[in-house]
Design a protein around this nucleic acid. Sequence first.
DNA 1: AGAGTTTTTGACTGATCCATCAACAACGGA
DNA 2: TCCGTTGTTGATGGATCAGTCAAAAACTCT
Lengths: 191, 191
Amino acid sequence: MARPRKFDADAAVEAAMETFWTKGYTGTSTEDLLAETGMLRGSLYNAFGSKRGLFELALHRYRDKGAAGQNAIQADRPPLERIRRLMLSGVDRAAADRRGCLAVNTVTELASVDPELAALARRCLTQLEAVLVEAIEDGRAQGEIRADRPARLLARQVMGTFHGLLVQAKAGYDRQSLHETVEAVVADLRA
Amino acid sequence: MARPRKFDADAAVEAAMETFWTKGYTGTSTEDLLAETGMLRGSLYNAFGSKRGLFELALHRYRDKGAAGQNAIQADRPPLERIRRLMLSGVDRAAADRRGCLAVNTVTELASVDPELAALARRCLTQLEAVLVEAIEDGRAQGEIRADRPARLLARQVMGTFHGLLVQAKAGYDRQSLHETVEAVVADLRA
DNA sequence: AGAGTTTTTGACTGATCCATCAACAACGGA
DNA sequence: TCCGTTGTTGATGGATCAGTCAAAAACTCT
């Protein structure tokens, strides 16, 4: 009933996500977005409304992809090993291109400037926290993980170190020392 | 032998630091800097050369103030308590205004865009790491802190969690749960 | 008082920012 | 085939960006 779109909206959001991830929200210009998505100005605004609107979509996509990745690791491995792999893969990816984590980047960039977007990013963090809590409770049921503290507290602790590692990855700390820290965290989790 | 300056260069750098801290590097306009320092365009450029130059000065100042703050805690308290207070005060400040830590903010904002500035910020982090290593070695000598791991590794671990907490503080996690995590980290450090 | 030096002042530059718009194009349904 | 709808295209808008400049001003030294 109308002219069909030339571009793939999904691919465009994906490209936008990558760009925001690399350059940050403020650091990404609409020109950058046009170049990366291959769209023209009018089309982009017609489809997504504004730079901010596109960023929201990108954040949602990031959260969804994160959830998918977290589930991919689940498999049938023991919980502690799941946590270990989660952190190792996250750290590796953050260190590889020095881009860190989009959610963490967004929170640090926008918390005191755009609380609404920051809250959106925060949901990515709480999602990870939930995954961790679940894994920890699993591991505790199996006697693999220490039970002297609430699972939520342990999860916060692990997540804290994890986010700190992402920052260190961006700061250029070498992969090996990041991995050592991960192993130390895992060791401290053991019952 | 020349016209005297009307403004206090130190106060100007201080004001600039606060502004960058709140709004980030890209997010701070020269107009913002003029408003906060009370200077006029030409004066600011005459004195500091560029926005980037002023930012470098602000980062140096941040590092110096950080060092001063870290030393202020030293006192004669036991090492573990020093670490505890260091983290608590850092977390409190980060949570109070949701600005986090200027060094962490800078690393996450600029690592993939301006490596030179990111490296400057990184030095703030390694300074803190050095302080931690020292405190841990002290505590170990007194039998207060566990000795089953290299002090540097423990320091990285503590620093990681600390930076993660700063992110969580920006994300709006409540003070109490941040404090609980600090206590958990301290407990895990004990011999 | 005059020369020399640095700062202040505010207007100005060109680039880039995000966003809008009208004209045109491509489709489905009547 | 013609109409309603939606997408594309590229020019254009005003705002803001970081940074420059020439002229006037405030000081010291001679």
